[in-house]
């Protein structure tokens, strides 16, 4: 099992004169499910397109399975890509969509048939072979797209926002489905997403990107528990981030005395880490919304807006009234500058 199955070194990607990704280094382990995570415009899709060969790097090198593919045409790389829009061929049936790549290789008809059928079975679409893409639901279309790439036995399977076009229920189903397919086939999978919960739930490792650079690389639990930067912290749900100056927490709008000694220049709290109902501080309720297991408040305090979750058992505080709260040491995340 290669630690550097896909290796991007000093890779610079640009559109015309605009550099989208500068000097990227990334190694992907054989057989892992890795997520490229970040907001739109962070370079995640650009990076994926470069791996696929749909975008020629301005400089740097891409190696796959020990082979330098930087200048290799996309149709010779042996990489699968499941497009966000699925990009099925509308004039062909599900079966012919899946068989498309195999037919290009001029395989014997019997082999095409058996491999296509196996692919359709892997994604659980038996009985839908004769349907045209327009006659299938979004989830079924995505399965066809997945099977179409899988039957080619790709070295790497890339997925562009694989769950974004599905409704909430299907999204959960497809999450586990993709994980199952990955474990069954052992294919190295790279998926692009802007949704941190998706990345956390599915990936073996997450590459968090910002402005074309890797902000943090780690396992989901590492990223969730110990985001390394303010950006990573905010992306992982630490929505209250403040600077520490001496004994005080400071923001653009004001300051509050910190109840404990802090070494770090910044501290961050998740909404769930803010203690609501009692504490030394007070904030006016700007908004309040029911979120199932808890109630989400936005409070206006001396530090500006604080996002705080209160247990659902507590009495709802009306808009405009004050709530006491605390930013406790136990839930504080120290951040380097």
């Amino acid at each position: 099992m290669s630690e550097k199955f896909v290796s991007l070194s000093d890779l610079t990607l640009s559109y015309g004169s605009t550099v989208a990704v500068p000097n990227l280094d990334l190694d992907i382990v054989e057989g892992e499910l890795i997520a490229l995570l970040g907001p739109s415009g962070c370079g995640k899709t650009t990076t994926m397109r470069a791996i696929a060969g749909l975008l020629t790097p301005a400089s740097g090198m891409i190696e796959i399975d020990g082979q330098d593919v930087t200048r290799l045409a996309a149709n010779k790389r042996g990489i699968g890509l499941v497009f966000q829009s699925y990009a099925l061929f509308p004039h062909l049936s599900a079966f012919e969509n899946v068989a498309f790549g195999l037919r290009l290789q001029r395989m014997p008809e019997a082999e095409i048939r058996s491999r296509t059928e196996a692919g359709i079975e892997t994604v659980g679409l038996m009985g839908f072979e004769a349907r045209k893409p327009a006659e299938m639901s979004g989830g079924q279309q995505q399965r066809v797209a997945l099977a179409r790439s899988l039957v080619m036995d790709p070295k790497v399977l890339l997925l562009d926002e694989p769950l974004s076009n599905l409704d909430a229920r299907l999204r959960l189903e497809m999450r586990s489905e993709l994980q199952r397919v990955q474990k069954d086939t052992g294919v190295t999978m790279v998926f692009v997403t802007h949704d941190q919960s998706e990345a956390l739930a599915m990936a073996d490792r997450i590459v968090l990107m910002k402005d074309g650079k890797i902000e943090q690389l780690g396992t989901p639990s590492q990223l969730y528990a110990e985001p390394a930067t303010a950006f990573a912290a905010e992306f992982m749900g630490f929505e209250n981030i403040f600077c520490v100056e001496g004994e005080n927490l400071v923001s653009d709008t004001g300051q509050l005395p910190l109840g404990f000694a802090a070494e770090a220049p910044m501290l961050a709290w998740r909404p769930g880490g803010v203690q609501v109902g009692r504490g030394p501080f007070s904030g006016r309720v700007l908004s309040s919304s029911f979120a199932g297991g808890h109630r989400e408040y936005v409070l206006d305090s001396l530090l500006g807006q604080i996002k705080a979750d209160a247990p659902i058992e507590t009495v709802e505080v009306p808009l405009g009234h004050n709530i006491d709260f605390d930013l406790p040491q136990s839930t504080a995340l120290p951040l380097a500058a």
Binding site: L54, F83, F89, F100, G101, A145, S149
Partner: peptide
């Protein structure tokens, strides 16, 4: 992207 899909399939 349909054409890109075709290219990636060979």
């Amino acid at each position: 992207d349909m054409e890109e899909a075709a290219v990636l399939l060979g």
